[in-house]
């Protein structure tokens, strides 16, 4: 804890359109985690502004941020971050609970979302009764269930073997083709290559911003 203030990001100016599939790359310490936290409304910038769907997120308080995260962001974490004591259904229902959806409605929505990621037969399994790939699918379902504006994935394949990793990336591809906005933070070139646009961050600055040719 030094007295010196370190700016993890400086002069980052960035615009992402609805429906884009963007990868953010950079070595550790580059500031990509900070950028992800800002984009995910987990944190607010000390300077500058962030607008999401026309809402000025940078000026919001804690509770407003929580509401925005609930409505606009779907998180997918490297370590899945499912609630260990709750089954898949309950995990997927969670965002709906915080959104105030009625029990019958949220059960129906959660079941449909689980089915859409191919887990219709695993709804009552707890995280420790599922494989890594299945867990990440639950996490994707949880991220999708509230129809957020952005799917924000932080190293989504980091804890998966290459085969299940590829499955998750295929799922992302599918979601992207159905119009979801996806932002993937990764340091794997192969993962980033599957997106349409790659942002490279170095020392708190955007080093490059290029479209992927396929």
């Amino acid at each position: 804890m030094g007295a010196e203030t370190v700016h993890a990001l400086r002069e980052v100016s960035l615009e992402i359109q609805k429906g884009e599939y963007v990868a953010i790359m950079g070595p550790s310490g580059s500031g990509k985690s900070t950028l992800m936290n800002l984009l995910g409304c987990l944190d607010t910038p000390t300077g500058g502004s962030y607008e999401l769907n026309g809402l000025r997120v940078s000026e919001m308080n804690d509770n407003q941020l929580a509401e925005i995260r609930n409505r606009e962001i779907g998180f997918i974490f490297q370590t899945f971050n499912l609630l260990p004591r709750s089954d898949a259904l309950r995990n997927v229902e969670l965002p709906l609970i915080y959104a105030g959806v009625s029990p019958a409605q949220r059960r129906q929505t959660a079941l449909a979302t689980l089915a859409s990621v191919g887990l219709a037969d695993r709804v009552h399994h707890k995280p420790n009764e599922m494989s890594g790939g299945q867990r990440q699918r639950v996490a994707v379902a949880r991220a999708l269930v509230n129809h957020p504006s952005i799917l924000l994935a932080d190293e989504p394949t980091g804890n998966l073997d290459s085969k299940t990793g590829a499955e998750i990336m295929a799922l992302f591809e599918n979601l992207s083709s159905r119009g979801h906005t996806i932002i993937v933070v990764t340091h794997e070139e192969g993962v980033a290559r599957q997106s349409r646009r790659i942002l490279r961050i170095r020392d708190g600055l955007i080093a490059s911003d290029e479209l992927v040719r396929k």
Binding site: G40, A66, R69, R71, N81, L83, P95, Y98, R142
Partner: peptide, 16 residues
């Protein structure tokens, strides 16, 4: 702590 983090990320407010 982690569970609290997840819940907050998903949209739990302070009050919740």
């Amino acid at each position: 702590t982690r569970e609290i983090g997840v819940r907050k990320a998903i949209g739990a407010k302070r009050r919740t």
